[in-house]
Amino acid sequence: MSDSSLLLEPVARLIEELGRLPGIGPKSASRLAFFILRAPESKVTMLADALLAVKHQVRQCIRCHYISDQEYCAVCRNPVRQTGTICVVEDPLDALAIERTGSFKGSYHVLHGRIAPLEGMGREDIFFDDLLERIGAESIREVIVATNPNLEGEATAAYLQRELSPLGTRVTRLARGLPTGGDLEWADTHTLTSALEGRRELF
């Protein structure tokens, strides 16, 4: 007997849909599907509602492309935030990570990707031109490039820098160095070099 006839059609469909999620393989998908099958209806309704709610209620901020429930996101709506500084990040989760530090008072710009030539991702695949427009429209003094510290992130940063510097805006990059709680012995030469280059006075 084949798999699809052993599994009823709704179950097979659920497994297939769950299997489309990132990081979920066929085995995990089956396990999740059977968990849902056993769970009380109220729980499943809550899950289904939550799934639909994110699609229906959440959209992108028209200014910075961070997730929002209104036209502008909470950061862009906040009158206390400084307007002259933009922090450019790859993903909404990166903006969230920076927001958690509480040390940044400007606004964000979420690219929703990075320039990754090996994956065929170029400037037209991310919110790059929007950023240029924003810089033209708002009086931006500084753009902090907070893309990931890997080759793709560096490529994106270098590209941004090249496009932005003619506009007269100050372009800065997040510092690179040693992580808190790390061991110097295990640090790679690249990170150590950056840490040395970016050293500063103790107090």
Binding site: N150, L151, P179
Partner: peptide, 13 residues
Amino acid sequence: KTQSKLSGHLELL
């Protein structure tokens, strides 16, 4: 992860 001992040694190229 930021604290990975391998990551800095596995950059592209």
